[in-house]
C-alpha cells in the first residue's frame, strides 16, 4: 500500500536537510550559486529580509514566475514563504509544488489571530518559534519542522541565541516534571499536553529544529549548532555580503565541522565584509519581526 503526505514523509524531508544550510535567494542565478556552494535547500523569495526592512510596505508571497524559474534551475529542494494565516498563498505554493512552505513572520501577517491549518496540505510546513510553547502550537497545527526565529535581516545573532536557548532550556525543564506537574506547566506555556508529554519523554522536539534570523558568519553558524540547532537558515547574510559564493561555502563547511574550531577558523579566512548589520536591541518594538506569530 502506498501513502503520500504522511507525517513521516513530511517531517522526513526535514530529517534529510539536517546538518545543512538553507539559503535565501531572490533569482535563479543566486539559487545556482547557493547550490554550487553546498546549500541543502534554497528559500525562494522576492526580497531578502534586510531589503524588506529597508523598503517597508507589505511583504507577500513571491511571484510564481520567479519560484518556477528557481525550481527549473536547481535540483535541491526549493522552499517558499507564505504570510502567517494566508492559507490561499500556501495553496498557491502547493500548486507550484514547492518542497516546503515557510509560514513566516518575515512577511507581513495576513491573520492576526490564526495560523494556517497545515494538516490538510500535502506540502510540509516549517514555522518559526521564539519559545517552546510557540513551537508546540505550530506542530499542533501541523508544522513538520521548526526554526528558531532570531531577528531576520539584522546580521545580529543575539536574538537567534536567545530563542534557541529559550527553546532548549524549556525542553530540559519539561523533562524534570512528573505527570502531575505537566498539565499546569503546559498551561503556562500554552502548549498542547500530548506534545509536551512527548517532549518531556524524548528530551527533544518531535520534529527537526533549525535556527534562523541573524546568521552572518561561519562562527555564527557553528555557535547555533553548538547550542542545539540541527541546521541553519541564512537569509540576508550571504547575498548581502562582499563575496556570496565564498561566504556560502564557508558557512556550509562551518555547519558540518562546528565541533572543530580549526576548521571553523580556516573557513572564516578572507571572506571580505559581512552584511551591513543592525543591532536588534536598537530596533523599536514594531520593527521586531520575531513578535509576529501567536
Amino acid at each position: 500500500m502506498r501513502d503520500e503526505a504522511t507525517f513521516t514523509v513530511k517531517s522526513g524531508l526535514a530529517e534529510m536537510l539536517k546538518g545543512g544550510v538553507i539559503m535565501d535567494v531572490v533569482t535563479p542565478e543566486q539559487a545556482k550559486i547557493a547550490e554550487d556552494a553546498g546549500a541543502c535547500a534554497v528559500m525562494a523569495l522576492e526580497r531578502v529580509p534586510a531589503d524588506i526592512r529597508r523598503d517597508g510596505g507589505v511583504a507577500r508571497m513571491s511571484d510564481p514566475e520567479m519560484i518556477s524559474g528557481i525550481q527549473e534551475t536547481v535540483t535541491i529542494p526549493v522552499m517558499a514563504k507564505a504570510r502567517i494565516g494566508h492559507f490561499v498563498e500556501a495553496q498557491v505554493l502547493e500548486a507550484l509544488e514547492v518542497d516546503y512552505i515557510d509560514e513566516s513572520e518575515v512577511l507581513t501577517p495576513a491573520d492576526e489571530r490564526n495560523h494556517i491549518d497545515k494538516w490538510p496540505f500535502k506540502v510540509p510546513f516549517v514555522c518559526g518559534a521564539t519559545n517552546l510553547g510557540e513551537a508546540l502550537r505550530r506542530i499542533g497545527e501541523g508544522a513538520a519542522m521548526i526554526r528558531s526565529k532570531g531577528e531576520a535581516g539584522t546580521g545580529d545573532i543575539v536574538e537567534a541565541v536567545r530563542h534557541m536557548r529559550q527553546i532548549t532550556g524549556e525542553i530540559k525543564r519539561l523533562g524534570t516534571l512528573n505527570e502531575a506537574e505537566l498539565p499546569s506547566a503546559v498551561k503556562e506555556i500554552a502548549a498542547p499536553l500530548d506534545l509536551a508529554r512527548s517532549v518531556a519523554a524524548e528530551g527533544k522536539l518531535p520534529v527537526v529544529l533549525f535556527c534562523a534570523g541573524g546568521i552572518a558568519t561561519p562562527a555564527d553558524a557553528a555557535l547555533m549548532m553548538a547550542l542545539g540547532a540541527e541546521g541553519v537558515f541564512v537569509g540576508s547574510g550571504i547575498f548581502k555580503s562582499d563575496d556570496p559564493p565564498a561566504r556560502a561555502k564557508a558557512i556550509v563547511e562551518a555547519t558540518t565541522h562546528w565541533r572543530d574550531p580549526e576548521r571553523v577558523a580556516a573557513a572564516s579566512r578572507g571572506l571580505g565584509s559581512a552584511m551591513v548589520s543592525l543591532e536588534s536591541s536598537k530596533l523599536a518594538g514594531e520593527q521586531l519581526l520575531a513578535q509576529r506569530g501567536w
Binding site: D3, E4, A5, V9, G12, M16, E94, E97, D99, Y100
Partner: peptide, 27 residues
C-alpha cells in the same frame, strides 16, 4: 517527483524474510 509525490510503501525485499519493509521514499 518533488516532495508532494513523496510516499511510504511496503517493499518486498530479497534477503529479508517475513513482512515487507515499510520504505519511506522522500524525493
Amino acid at each position: 517527483g518533488r516532495q508532494v509525490r513523496s510516499f511510504e510503501a511496503d517493499v518486498a525485499m530479497e534477503g529479508i524474510d517475513g513482512a515487507p519493509v515499510r520504505g519511506v521514499f522522500i524525493r
